[in-house]
Design a protein around this nucleic acid. Sequence first.
DNA 1: CGTTATTTTGACCCATGTCAATACGGGTGG
DNA 2: CCACCCGTATTGACATGGGTCAAAATAACG
Lengths: 247, 247
Amino acid sequence: MYSSHLAASSRSASIPRLSLVPEIASLERLFVSQPVETFEPGGAVFWEGDAASHVFHVHEGCLRLYRILPDGRRAVMGFAHGGEMIGVPFPASYPYSAEAVTKVRLRRLGRGRFNAVVDGSDSLRPLLLARMQQELGVAHKHMIVLARLSAEERVVAFLLSAARRTGAEMNHPVAVELPISRLDIADYLGLTIETVCRTISKLKRDGLITVENRHTVILNRMGSLEKLAGGTDEVDDAPPLRIAARH
Amino acid sequence: MYSSHLAASSRSASIPRLSLVPEIASLERLFVSQPVETFEPGGAVFWEGDAASHVFHVHEGCLRLYRILPDGRRAVMGFAHGGEMIGVPFPASYPYSAEAVTKVRLRRLGRGRFNAVVDGSDSLRPLLLARMQQELGVAHKHMIVLARLSAEERVVAFLLSAARRTGAEMNHPVAVELPISRLDIADYLGLTIETVCRTISKLKRDGLITVENRHTVILNRMGSLEKLAGGTDEVDDAPPLRIAARH
DNA sequence: CGTTATTTTGACCCATGTCAATACGGGTGG
DNA sequence: CCACCCGTATTGACATGGGTCAAAATAACG
């Protein structure tokens, strides 16, 4: 389960510190003494290309991570939600820009300091590795979405992954909050805003989802949706595939 | 700069070993005592989903790394060429399958052993980190290609990256070897084989490239090609972009 | 309540996919 | 060495998913 550390660390915030109890190692804990910064929607946390001086822990809110091509096209590489960290695996300069989608509260830590502390801790190092592996896994998954799924499959996969983030039962109806705009979704899925809209409308017509309002969608028939997603989902614990490859 | 360590390590290969001179740390060196294995074209090195027991160092040849969706669609996540390592950042099970494209010679190392050695070495650890950062960077770059470039831009970007791998002058004509089949290219670029062919034919007609034979292409006008690639290329040392984002 | 941004829908078009035929190349056996 | 065969690549004709352009509807915001 991806978010085990996150769950543990956020819980720990409410646990009184008993000095004799060994702390459970967590990367998130490194940020606790840092001041909390606030960003209003649209505010930039950092820009692609700038020297990557910090690593961030998003306390609450949602950020979009994106790059702009020379001709203005935008590619949203992903989003960062409350509880997640950004920049853990950053190279010398930020590989993308980060902007607040909603009001964001976060903490930052100097990259050098972060690296030094983690590198010096036997318990933290594996956590960093795991984190980076996870990040790579997410990127690979998204590559598949972009490379091989149809517009409808992409949108459904997106909705399902959003639903999964809520931690709700993957069985029946789930209400999904989408603070993210249609345009952000489009740029994330490699589609246009119109296609995203139309696809959502179609899913609505077909009764698979209910659109409460612009930022709230209810997934009615998870089973059908998962079929529509083209099997990209929940690959994590899917049985090994050995289908013969085309050559 | 992503590849600073890498450059250093490959340079070290040509430095005579004086026993009193401290060895220059390199991840590749961990494999030298392992036996070399050979795979014929089409041979599988490992399968997606299998327990990730090993880490690999490709000595020579070319591998394709891919996943198959439940309905048979294939997504090629990337290729591994001589000199490169695969699996450094692998989680518990292989996230994709690896097959030899050409005859491949490689060495393997138990993942546990690899991790233990690297984790125990102050000089190796940063190399691993850098390697993983680089890998993530490659994935991000490819996400952009898949999300936002046209068919022609994708093919050109692919050719250019292949050319860059040769290390040749990025100025005038470069001959590029493509052991990879059109189908592999298509599945890598999120296109169909026909579109890849047509695009290559068009580039040929326009005089931008010359097709020596199926597996050799000459890039005639690098400048024009780089323009066609949509600016995805050489992003590494491009000036920071601060173009206003659409909202 | 206007004013403006975002989303949705419509009409149309084009890049890319699909289906099918042909051409090419590289190996094999006679 | 040649004829054949089969896998790969190329080209053509056609279909269509998704892009583009434009307008209307809805929601957010003073």
